[in-house]
Write a protein that binds this DNA or RNA. Structure first.
Lengths: 204, 204
DNA sequence: CATTATACTGTATAAATATATAGTATATTT
DNA sequence: AAATATACTATATATTTATACAGTATAATG
């Protein structure tokens, strides 16, 4: 992601605010009105710059055909998004990954959390985490050994126990004999910790 | 909120899907394309009906000026009691047995339920039910084979899989090799089914 | 039995909108 | 010194789009 200029940031913010307020993206004229431009081409060129830098996508020919790339859905109040374990890429809150939302009291699990992750596979079955369970995920980098983390290793997302064995060695341990430990050498492999599990919900 | 017709539901779903996919609402023509209508007025009239019934809002004059009304879902204060597995006697809702209450939206687990039961022991560990988990219990006698039931046998309460093997024989099966099946002959032994599990919550 | 709601096709058009073109000006990079 | 990116104004226009009007048909309602 390239650098964004202050003015382009203003336009991007303007688009987000407009969508939040109305439910649909602005026209060039709307952006001019909001930001005080006097020519629709001012908006146009900014939009094209934002598109080139991959902050937005523009559907050619469509009115209001602007969409913000990777918009993090903000769960106002108590509607928490449920996202699936996307095989490639992190479980982002981008709308296309959101199955549905679940209304849940804040602080339901003692701790705050950010979204629910739908579990695939049985690699944590001995920890009582079964297929289709919903894990309440708190986005954080504060991880202790033994925490159940949502980790991304080179585009693959998994749920595992976290254990740091040495400054540069992290073990991701399943809770199922049929699966193997994953040893990650941080100098060789990129490891991104999405967050940790603070609770679980099962519907049956 | 008035009743929605099946066709109007289709249109509403179509709008939601379109927004999820593209980031902006559809035009009348888009809706026609998605649903196979041949006249833009088909979409128009459905939209006006949905607006009248308050499912959507339409910004007059604006292209793609459709927004879905999300009526504030406030989970009506549903405080469900958490009861412990009382060794002797059923897990009654008498106040001395209630640990605390947990506020939880109605229909959180798809089905209604009556209280939470705090799990003791690991007899259902292979079903992903661990010590201290909270089972959402629905008081009911409508039990199918394979349901997870909360059963009382002569003053002892347990959580097990339910299986009726013969008209008078019920098996209560644990999900843990280290525990044994319990065979209950209904002619000899009193078996009371408290209810069944419709969901699970874990705080960690 | 008239009225209203639902569920469409088909056509037309004013208004909304994207987008190209022509300029001006400044800063940054090559 | 030339090219490129940023940041605008101003005007024009083809296309997109909302929306009205004219029909047809069926089911529900009072």
């Amino acid at each position: 992601m390239k650098d964004i200029t202050p003015q382009q940031q203003k336009v991007l913010d303007c688009i987000q605010v407009y969508i939040n307020k109305t439910g649909f993206p602005p026209t060039r004229a709307d952006i001019c009105r909001e930001l005080g431009f006097k020519s629709p081409n001012s908006a146009e060129t900014h939009l094209r710059a934002l598109e080139k830098k991959d902050f937005i996508s523009i559907e050619s020919g469509a009115s209001r055909g602007i969409s913000i790339n990777n918009p993090e859905i903000k769960h106002e109040g108590n509607d928490y998004p449920i996202v699936g374990l996307v095989a490639a890429g992190s479980p982002t809150l981008a709308s296309e990954n959101v199955e549905k939302v679940l209304n849940c009291p804040k602080g339901f699990f003692g701790s705050d959390f950010d979204y629910f992750l739908r579990v695939r596979g049985l690699s944590m079955k001995d920890a009582g985490i079964m297929e289709d369970d919903l894990i309440a995920v708190k986005k954080t980098q504060e991880i202790k050994n033994g925490d159940i983390v949502i980790a991304r290793i080179e585009d693959e997302v998994t749920v595992k126990y976290f254990q740091r064995s040495a400054p540069n060695i992290v073990h991701l341990k399943p809770a199922n004999e049929e699966f193997n430990d994953i040893e990650v050498n941080l100098e060789e492999t990129e490891l991104y910790i999405e967050g940790k599990s603070v609770g679980l919900i099962r519907e049956n």
